[in-house]
Simulated assay, not measured.
Amino acid sequence: MHSRRMQMVMDRAAIALSTACAIHCLLLPILLVALPALATTSIGRESFHRLLLWFAFPVSVLALTQGCRRHKDRIVLIAGVLGLVLITTTTFIGESFLNENSERLAMVVGATALSFGHFRNYRLCNKNNCKNNCKF
């Protein structure tokens, strides 16, 4: 069942996951200096990005697709696709092609674009009062 409530929950979850990714990118170096033991946990590893992406990607695609079908806003689609491409590309090939600062910047820009897309999607669905019976 694809209801307005489910749409909003998916957008909120995707915003939270994107934000967690950005915070992880920005604060991890500081935390590793302050608490070196974190390096031995899953939070201190690059695989943490893959784990976040594993959850964020399907939720984002579903939420953005449903929202865009309802309100037809291209900015949501562009921001969402840009964010997903940056995050996915950086997660899987960023280490090989980018230095640490560039990788961090790409992840933060991607997470910001994705969060913006979901925030706008959330607002438009709320504003347009997307109904439970919208055709998909």
Rank of each mutant, 00 (worst) to 15 (best):
P58S: 10
R69G: 13
P29V: 13
N132K: 08
L124T: 10
G83L: 05
H2T: 08
H24V: 01
T90K: 01
W54C: 11
R45H: 14
N129I: 08
R5W: 08
L86T: 03
M107V: 05
T90Q: 07
A56K: 02
L28Q: 15
L82A: 15
A111C: 12
L86W: 07
R50T: 09
F116E: 03
L28E: 15
V109W: 02
F116Y: 13
M10Q: 06
L27S: 06
H24E: 06
R12I: 11
F136V: 15
V85H: 09
K131E: 12
L28I: 09
H71L: 01
T65F: 14
R12P: 00
A39S: 15
F48N: 09
T91Q: 02
M10K: 11
F136R: 14
A111M: 10
G67N: 07
R45C: 12
N101I: 14
F92E: 13
I93N: 12
I75W: 11
A56F: 08
L86R: 08
M107F: 09
L124E: 11
A37F: 15
R50S: 10
C68T: 15
R120K: 11
G80S: 10
G117I: 03
S18W: 00
F119S: 05
N132I: 03
A20P: 04
M10A: 05
N133Y: 05
M8Q: 10
P58N: 04
R50P: 00
L31G: 13
M107W: 01
L52A: 01
R45I: 03
S47P: 07
T41E: 07
K127N: 03
H49R: 11
L32K: 14
N126W: 11
F136L: 15
R70H: 06
D73E: 12
H71Q: 10
L105R: 10
L98Y: 08
N101A: 13
L105F: 12
K72F: 00
G94L: 01
R70D: 12
M1G: 14
L26C: 15
F55V: 03
I78A: 14
N128M: 09
L98D: 03
G83H: 02
R4T: 02
F55N: 07
K72Y: 03
G94R: 04
L77D: 06
N121L: 02
M8S: 03
A111F: 06
E103F: 06
A14D: 05
V85A: 13
G117V: 02
S60F: 04
L124K: 13
F119R: 04
E95Y: 01
L98M: 10
T88D: 07
